[in-house]
Computed example of a mutant assay.
Amino acid sequence: MSSSQTSTAKIPDDMAMLRAAAELTRDISAARGGIYWPDMLVSAVIGYGALAGAILLESPAAALACAAVAVLALYRALLFIHELTHIHRDALPGFRLGWNLLVGIPLLTPSFMYENVHTLHHARTRYGTAEDPEYLPLALMKPWSLPMFIVAALALPFALLARFAVLVPLGAAIPPLRRLVWERASALAINPQFRRRAPEGDFARLVFWQELGGAVWALALVAFSVAYGWRPLLIALCVVSAVAVFNQLRTLVAHLWQNEGEAMTVTAQYLDSVNVPPPGIWAELWAPVGLRYHATHHLLPSLPYHSLAEAHRRLSARLGEGSTYGQASYPGLWMLIGRIAKSTMRVGGKRAADNPAVIQP
């Protein structure tokens, strides 16, 4: 066992912190439709309106300004997919359907691509292991792994278009292709070893309708582009590429990525995760919908995003800055990126050579 495993995976649980997290948040645990619906709808309306401006405006400066607004607004709207994986299915009637119709299917990222995937990342015995679809020991890899991790996101919307417009229709006629697409290209995962199990029951029916909607929409986009030109679609794909890069940057700093595959205690998982609380204001742009409190989210996965700031305030006041809870707070994006980059330059090459268990992307 390496020293990093000893220092992270074997950290004992801080029971006082875990008890406080449960006790202090019982009264703020309900998802509030009066917050979810307006937030999602306003983000989507602003995003699509700005995207239309980016496509239609003749002034390059105005088009670029609209594209920037579209990236931020659509990014926020898209990140509600994270909430859909955690809130109870009956908590917000119609929200899952509404989000998929307004955001998920138009952006070719329906909720099935995260549902029953992200919850594996929160499973007590899976986090940080080879069975975690959302974990790689990025801080322990070679330095070039980080830029490759970010650049790969640029191709995501183009790959999604090909998936829904080509692979899904072909898979309906070719079962082996259908199985391959489901196992390897149906989850928002970063672990290349992850293989998705076939859907069952009600979830299989949900997948069918969402994939059908995605395929119809993707084919309509292609048909429109063939008939009227590819420029609007290419601009839209570039905007969504920027959204994907934004999300990949956020993912890069959501954790410290220091575990090499061993199961971790809840406290170790918390300390391997990141909060970027106020007074910084920019985190609300690059980590919206509560994701600036990602470590707190790992303590309280079912807590709705609009309650995380209050949960953080209560836990900080109860436990203090010098507590285990305070150790997961960091000042900002660039400091976290620099920390991971320095780690890869210091130990990545040596660990990759000495430990074949370290995953190489």
Rank of each mutant, 00 (worst) to 15 (best):
S273L: 03
S273N: 02
S273I: 00
S273D: 01
V274N: 01
V274R: 09
V274M: 00
V274E: 00
V274L: 05
N275V: 05
N275Y: 00
N275F: 00
N275M: 08
N275P: 10
V276Y: 00
V276R: 02
V276N: 09
V276E: 05
P277G: 06
P277V: 01
P277S: 03
P278L: 01
P278E: 06
P278G: 08
P278A: 13
P278Y: 05
P278H: 10
P278I: 03
P279A: 04
P279K: 10
P279C: 02
G280E: 02
G280Q: 10
G280P: 02
G280F: 08
I281V: 15
I281C: 11
I281R: 14
I281D: 02
I281A: 12
I281W: 15
W282R: 06
W282N: 00
A283F: 01
A283T: 11
A283D: 00
A283Y: 08
A283N: 11
E284L: 08
E284S: 13
L285R: 15
L285K: 04
L285N: 09
W286T: 08
W286Y: 15
W286N: 02
W286C: 05
W286H: 15
A287N: 07
A287W: 00
A287F: 03
P288K: 05
P288I: 12
P288H: 07
P288M: 12
P288T: 13
P288G: 13
V289M: 05
V289P: 04
V289T: 09
G290M: 12
G290H: 06
G290Q: 06
G290Y: 05
G290L: 12
L291H: 13
R292N: 15
R292K: 15
R292W: 01
R292M: 14
Y293P: 06
Y293A: 04
Y293D: 04
Y293M: 05
H294Q: 14
H294S: 11
H294L: 10
H294F: 10
A295G: 12
A295C: 10
A295H: 08
A295S: 15
A295Q: 04
A295K: 06
T296P: 00
T296C: 14
T296H: 05
T296K: 03
T296W: 12
H297S: 01
H297V: 11
H297F: 08
H298L: 12
H298K: 01
H298E: 15
H298Q: 12
H298F: 07
H298I: 13
L299H: 07
L299C: 09
L299P: 03
L299A: 09
L299S: 12
L300D: 08
L300H: 08
P301K: 01
P301V: 02
P301M: 03
S302E: 09
S302T: 15
S302P: 00
S302G: 00
